[in-house]
Structure formats: structure tokens, C-alpha cells
Design a protein around this nucleic acid. Structure first.
Lengths: 207, 207
DNA sequence: GGTGTAAGCAAGTGACCACTTGCATTCCTG
DNA sequence: CAGGAATGCAAGTGGTCACTTGCTTACACC
């Protein structure tokens, strides 16, 4: 690992703890085990370093959702779990980035890429589910997606601060939110059954 | 309005824009139209001033939820709307406060009071709804509350950054989230049904 | 063995930070 | 009108900030 990567790595850690204003070049240099001048020789300025560090840390792929839903509960639960884990691992950085939204909007550009993509994927999946006729209730995919993602986001951001507000245990939370969503859509448990009856049945249940 | 209040007011504004580290005593003094020394004479230190400002801005009452649910859709929608409005009006400050969680946990103490209370109120209401036998689905109140509050929180914090992810129009969002919740609980639209059983039970509850 | 490149070290620059001091001004009250 | 409290103003203090400069060291490659 060369000094450049060490510095970027350290910058991410210090930024996550202290935010832009708190992450001084001295602190980054100390964390990286590097002389402060090296930072300026490598990146030119603190701004440029942080920009690079943010680009790095937010460039991740999500667990994909199948194009054609087959087992919604299983597929959505897995997706929710990977999404909540992504957010939890980065919760400090995300909080810092969001708080600097007004001052440094270009940083948010990077940070918002993953949730934007996640929302689009989820909407697409829910729309497909609807088209398959496997949802008993009428619903707007965007609202449904905002509910699930909102619950996951709030959990990832806030559980540390107020653990008593969120469902226990932490590890089951994503699954519980997912089940709740499916209940609202009127989707049955289990894998896909391709009968007409099913639609009828779930409608009766909710009536 | 005396200078003390002017300073606290200005501190809130500057903090909302720049966070703790960015809200310098010089900037606060300028915003308040006051000499910088006055701040130190009145509050002793920047820390003390910000503490006081945060105490002030987070001390608010929520729209109450009735002890005995009568018209869930109406009551919950009104509550959600007041909650989302509360968060939206303070979104900048909340983002800054959350980002300073690790460094200044005592600040979060104040900030978490309202959402804690909101969660408790909502859980209480949903439990009452369940006891009235007006929910067709089985559900855990805490999970349901976390879903609704999470959606509202994420909307209030994130819509500015990624408006395309949240349902439109903005003013109807709280209502849409609420309806979605009620669908998941299997609660009927409209006002309370007055079969014998239910009337008795609720009367007992409220007594 | 000479050369170029990346890194360290020490020192310094001007700007800003929280906070202090001393003194002048204003205004209210007894 | 006298006295005290609240405020303004100018200046200063020690600290930290991002960033620069000049010089030295270490290692890699021809």
C-alpha cells in the first residue's frame, strides 16, 4: 500500500469522525503515519484530497434485485439487509456528508448515487411485482419504496442515538421492515404461484 | 427583544448553516448585530451559548394523538403532517446535530427528545388501535411506528438532496405514508365502526 | 556510481480562531 | 444629578489552520 492510498484511507477515517472542518491535514497526516507536506505534494490541497476520498468511499455496487420477481420475501429481505449494512458501515460518513450538503453540494453528488440507484432498483422491482398481479392492494411503487428505504435509512442513522425507538434485535430489523412492506402490498409469503386464484384470496383477506 | 435573545437566535441560524465548528463567535455576532465581546460577557463561552441555543430550539410540543383512536386515518394523517413539518423546519439543524453525535453527545440528548416522544406516542396509539380490534393484520407496534417515522424522517432529511426519490407532491407525502401504514395494518378507511364489542372495549380503555 | 523521484524535517506565512483587557459610551434608576 | 449595569470599540494573546519553502535522506534504475 503506497502513501497515496494510506492518506486517502486516513482521510476517510478522520472525515467520518470529525467532518470536513474537523479533519485537518495535520490529523490526516498523523493517522496515515505520513508527513503533512506529503499530503500537499500528492493532492495539492485538502479539498482535492477529500474529494478523492469521497469518490472512493461512495463507489460501491448494491446487491442486485432480479428483473423478474420470483420469491419476493426472500429477494427483498436479502436486498434490504445488504442495503442496511451498507448504510450502517458508512453511517458516520453519511451523517457528516449530509450535514455539509448546503456548504459542499458536490460532495452530496457522490453520496446520493447509491440511494438514488437503490430507489430506482426497488421501484422497478415493485412495479414488476405489480404487473405480475401478485399484489392484492393498490399502491404507488415510489411511495412503497420510500417507506422501506426510509425505515432502513432512519434505522441506520438513528439506532445508535436512540436504540429504544427501533425494533429489536438489530439484525432482524431489515427483515421486519421488508415483511411489513409486503403486508401493505398484500403479497403472499413464499415463492411464486401462478394462479389467478391467488389474487382473489389476498383481496378477501384484506377486506 | 434584548441582546441575549438576538444572540441565541443568530446562533441557531449560523449553527444551522455551518455546524458547530463553522459557527464562529464572529459570525454569530455579525448575524446578531452585536459586538463579539457581548457574547462572552453574556454566555461566558461559545460552548455555553450553543448549548443554550440548542436547548431552546428543540423544546417543542408535538400535536398530540388521542388516547382512544376514533378516526385513525384522519388522526394519524394530522399527526404525520405536523411531525414532518417539525422536521422540515429544522432539517438543517438536525443534520448538523446528528453529524456531531460522536463529538458532542450531550447535544443529541436535546435533539432526540422530540423523536423519542413521538415514537412513544405513536406506539401507544397503534397499540390502542390493535386492542380495539380494528386492525386486520398482526403487527408489532414498534416496527410499524419505525416504518412511518422512518419514512417521514428520511423524506424531511433527504428530499432536498434527491427530490426524485420521494413521492410527489411534497405536501401530500405525509398523508401517503400514513395511508400506506394503515394498509399494512389492515385498518379500514373512514371513521370508527360502532359494533357493540368495540364500543364496550374502547369505553373500558378510556375509563 | 550517478541520477531522478518520493519522502521527511524544520521553519515560516498570513489568516482565522476563542477569548481577554482596558476604556469610552449609553441609558436606566434612585 | 450620581452611580451602576449593559454595551461598544480597539487592541492584543496564544493557538490552530492550510499551505509553502529549502534542504536532507533513502531508494530504484540505468
Amino acid at each position: 500500500m503506497n502513501s497515496r492510498d494510506e492518506i486517502i484511507n486516513a482521510a476517510c477515517q478522520v472525515f467520518a469522525k470529525l467532518g470536513f472542518r474537523g479533519c485537518t491535514t495535520r490529523r490526516i497526516a498523523d493517522a496515515a503515519g505520513v508527513n503533512e507536506v506529503t499530503i500537499f505534494r500528492q493532492f495539492g490541497s485538502k479539498e482535492a484530497l477529500i474529494r478523492e476520498a469521497m469518490k472512493m468511499i461512495h463507489s460501491v455496487g448494491l446487491t442486485p434485485l432480479p428483473d423478474v420477481p420470483s420469491d419476493p420475501e426472500h429477494e427483498l429481505t436479502r436486498w434490504s439487509e445488504s442495503f442496511i449494512q451498507h448504510l450502517r458501515l458508512r453511517s458516520s460518513i453519511i451523517r457528516k456528508t449530509m450535514s455539509e450538503m448546503e456548504e459542499r453540494p458536490e460532495m452530496c453528488e457522490h453520496a446520493s448515487y447509491v440511494p438514488r440507484q437503490a430507489s430506482a432498483d426497488l421501484c422497478h422491482y415493485l412495479t414488476a411485482l405489480k404487473r405480475q398481479g401478485r399484489t392484492a392492494e393498490r399502491f404507488e411503487p415510489k411511495t412503497a419504496a420510500a417507506m422501506l428505504m426510509g425505515a432502513i435509512f432512519a434505522d441506520a442513522m438513528g439506532r445508535q442515538m436512540m436504540p429504544d425507538v427501533y425494533p429489536q434485535p438489530e439484525e432482524k430489523a431489515a427483515q421486519m421492515y421488508t415483511r411489513f412492506l409486503l403486508k401493505a402490498l398484500g403479497v403472499e409469503n413464499g415463492t411464486r404461484r401462478t394462479t389467478n386464484k391467488q389474487t382473489k384470496r389476498t383481496k378477501q383477506l384484506s377486506a
